[in-house]
Design a protein around this nucleic acid. Sequence first.
DNA 1: ACTAAACTGTTTACTAGATTAACAATATGC
DNA 2: GCATATTGTTAATCTAGTAAACAGTTTAGT
Lengths: 158, 158
Amino acid sequence: MASLRKTDRHAEDETLGETPDLEEFIGYNLKRAYVIVQADFRRALGEDGFAPRVFSALSLVVQYPNVTQSGLARMLGIERSGLVAIVDELEGRGLLKRTNVPGDRRVQALVPTQKGKTVYAEARATVRVHEEQLLSNLSTDEKATLMALLAKIRANGE
Amino acid sequence: MASLRKTDRHAEDETLGETPDLEEFIGYNLKRAYVIVQADFRRALGEDGFAPRVFSALSLVVQYPNVTQSGLARMLGIERSGLVAIVDELEGRGLLKRTNVPGDRRVQALVPTQKGKTVYAEARATVRVHEEQLLSNLSTDEKATLMALLAKIRANGE
DNA sequence: ACTAAACTGTTTACTAGATTAACAATATGC
DNA sequence: GCATATTGTTAATCTAGTAAACAGTTTAGT
């Protein structure tokens, strides 16, 4: 093969010896992909729909009724101080109740209301359609592979 | 197989007929994975290292010297107003210069300094190590697959 | 040549999401 | 009992980002 000369025209622009390429980094690609998915999520849920984190919180409350705020924050990977506003919003919309727990007067268990369960089911359907349409150029297999790889990353850092 | 009765104990908790599961959503998994990668990026680059977006901007300026701010903002997918602070920081650190362009007095082309190229090369090496270590439980193939799938998502939304 | 439209970099004001530190009330371990 | 830990909460702060307006400049249409 032809030998590559180290010095050439524009050598001063190539002293590093490699072409920098932002696209090689997983972090950058993850972020760009997430921005797209998140924007489409918001578009799909509309003006006064749920923000992603509120949807996530409601999902977990429906799935795990009587979860405490600390427990929910832990599951979501955020601080419990940050969860207060989220729970305030969901309670304000009548989708869950803070309830007393007999054994421990510190905690307030989060219980979805019937409306909360219904509204969540609708929102979940909307989110499913949003993901199906946005990711329609990925096969079922590809989506499963993506989930598995993301799960591997999550397994490292949590 | 045994028939499933629709009404049973706890029927009121299962009127939706399906187990909600946040983990089924790509968006949620993308976000959780990104949070982990981003946090490790910052840890790896240290106290006064680059924020991810500043690193990205510098990378593109090194790769595309004389890019305009508008062009750079477009590549990064952010507003040009948001880019000003990023370029200010890089210029303040002496890593690039805003330079006049003969033909068009509106634009200021961004040119990396020699220091900028050197510092970027070091930072890039650090970021590579960070990703290699953080994602050490993914094979080379798996990483390539992940990149390809993320690229497919990006292709949809950009 | 003139004028309307578009583009560039910038500032300002604002929003969302998140963290940290402190706090009072309560519970737990020894 | 007492030190320690936990829970939910508030307040202060930070970062990342958007939207709107702007002055200066360039481009397009006629």
